[in-house]
Design a protein around this nucleic acid. Structure first.
Lengths: 208, 208
DNA sequence: ACAAACCTACCTTTAGGTAGGTAGTCTAGG
DNA sequence: CCTAGACTACCTACCTAAAGGTAGGTTTGT
């Protein structure tokens, strides 16, 4: 299992420090996350997860009656994981740029630097056929995501670290779009290090 | 039908000037393209297309025996459409920046400014479960796509229009990632005009 | 004993795909 | 000119596999 997923689950269940092993419910979320990154929401089935865990399909329905319940849980766990990641740092001592770099690092780790795609993109690419509850959860996440990055941009602008190129919201949009797009492209593995290359240019465009 | 799709098909069949109406085969490609933009490759079925065209599923198998054949055809038509779009312009009279703007406009039109997603992303998000032949076609397209943008960047650098921020390839990667990411985000429609906002910042970061 | 976590066994629907038939069109030969 | 064969673009009818989902029984730990 990847470091990302280990921690994703640990923070989701709150057993990070105790060292207990993951229970089935959390393992399901973990595997679903991975599969969504690789294949998108419609691209995985309960059977895929059941096979990996060596349990039966019905057991997954016990934990997540409908597939959309599992989808929502994946987004929630992802959200929780970011919160946890941010919490690890002493934000008061960091510059806005350092905070942004930490954010980029987070994204890179969740996608294994391009081995897997962006979690959100696994949903977004299929948004036209997603159940309503999932579309809402997705919108909720993206709204929060935007606010998170906007805050960092604002801070960098106030401290004079970043160059103004529009409203902070617009700059945040730009940062997120480029980062998400980079993770996407990284998947076909034609050019190694796509993500890092793009991130460097995002930062450059912000700072000089 | 969108202007994009009309022309996508027209150039694919070569009957743009004659004004003949589209034959079934081309209509199938057109609808498949649209559905892939909304739902991804796995998110549409032959039945969806059959219903829209008021024909039977088996007729689609007649034109495209396997689903992957249709997938490949969609990418080919998309490629052909860009070639055609580029051909419309008198490139000799344009600056590198104008050429790049034309490229961005192309992308915006194919996705109706965010009503639909990026065609390639409909495949990319599911690359982990795509049949081999489709992955190859996708890689072929992306390679060509990269070369296209890299050329424009090189030209802009030589003419002194663009600022150097790494190798031309790296800058092209950045441009594509940001543009694709923007189209992706535009889909959930929380912020209107995402694409234009991001494109403006790409250009700004290139030119100043 | 009771609840959580799992199971077997089943359901319905839909997917991609195939076999084989038919109605119209095109073309060649008598 | 007119028919025979071939070809195109559809059709009906079917197959198998797999999807999401459910009902209800069994195991396991406290």
């Amino acid at each position: 299992m990847t470091a990302f997923l280990k921690r994703l689950i640990a923070c989701h269940t709150g057993c990070a420090s105790t060292g207990e092993k993951l229970d089935t419910k959390d393992q399901i979320v973990q595997i679903a996350t991975e599969l969504i990154q690789q294949r998108g929401y419609q691209g995985f089935s309960y059977q895929d997860i059941a096979t990996r865990l060596d349990i039966k399909k019905a057991s997954i329905h016990y934990h997540f009656p409908k597939k959309e319940d599992l989808g929502v849980a994946v987004i929630s766990a992802y959200y929780q994981y970011i919160q946890d990641w941010i919490g690890k740092y002493d934000l008061d001592k960091m510059t806005a740029l350092e905070k942004l770099e930490q954010y980029f690092q987070f994204f890179a780790e969740t996608a294994l630097h391009g081995e897997l795609g962006c979690v959100m993109n696994g949903f977004l690419a299929e948004s036209g056929s997603l159940p309503e509850v999932l579309r809402e959860k997705l919108a909720w996440f993206e709204k929060w995501h935007m606010e998170l990055v906007t805050m960092k941009v604002k801070e960098g602008l106030e401290k004079g670290e970043f160059k103004k190129r529009g409203t902070p919201e617009e700059q945040a949009l730009f940062i997120i779009a480029a980062a998400m797009g980079a993770l996407n492209m990284a998947q076909d593995k034609q050019t190694p290090g796509v993500y890092d290359i793009v991130v460097r240019q995002i930062i450059e465009s912000l700072t000089c």
